[in-house]
Nucleic acid binder design. Sequence first.
DNA 1: AAGCCCCCCAACCGCCTCGGC
DNA 2: CGCCGAGGCGGTTGGGGGGCT
Length: 239
Amino acid sequence: MGRQPCCDKENVKKGPWTVEEDRKLIQFMLMMNNEPCRWRALPKRAGLTRCGKSCRLRWKNYLRPDLKRGQFSEAEEELIIDLHSRLGNRWSKIATSLPGRTDNEIKNHWNTHIKKRLIKVGIDPVTHEPLRPSTGGIDKASSENTDGDRDASTNSNDESWDLSFQDDGDAGLSSAWDEEYYQEAVLVVDVEELDGLIDFGDGGVGEQNSDVSVDGGENSTALESYERPINVDGSRFNK
DNA sequence: AAGCCCCCCAACCGCCTCGGC
DNA sequence: CGCCGAGGCGGTTGGGGGGCT
């Protein structure tokens, strides 16, 4: 029989989100007090041509106002390792212990940084056991298995390498939250103007009728309760 | 200066779980 | 109890961009 697809793939936009799409989603979520009724119904009501799942991911992993973003602290990394040793790849569970971090973010950080570092210090990232108990240190084979990444090469002096994970040199604010960048890229949504954009009907916020739509016009003035930096060109926060 | 390589991470995909009926 | 729909989760992908040759 097969599962019904979550959306009509023919008429659904994919790929990176644009500023306008973000704006529409943010406005809609603000209107709903950050609690959408049904994700599958959201795109239509928010005026988006995205799959509901895609909207959910975008909001949860990127637009949510309580996200921390930026570099993981040493304490956070240690906590992730500890939780991973007990929970395994249950990223969402791990994420619940790291406020402001998403499961996707933690998963990416694990796969791109922590995993490699554990291997480098001779610890199996899956079992958290020493890779070679008798070698008492770096597993050469494993080190060579890290496909020659740049991180590894910068830390080849293993005398100074321990589980506290010395910084790779890019400490401090991530580029995404760099002050100067923030100044040019911050997206401001004027909550007070939402009434002018959205027809709530008589029910008010949270009780709007199905005709609700969002007009992503030029409504970027003062901010009352929401500020998220979004690249002005709609690109992501990459360095 | 140009081209190549490779890392990073946002986003997608498919399966799983849960709740309503 | 089984079915179905919706959200959640974890694995994977692929494009952007920085570093290297």
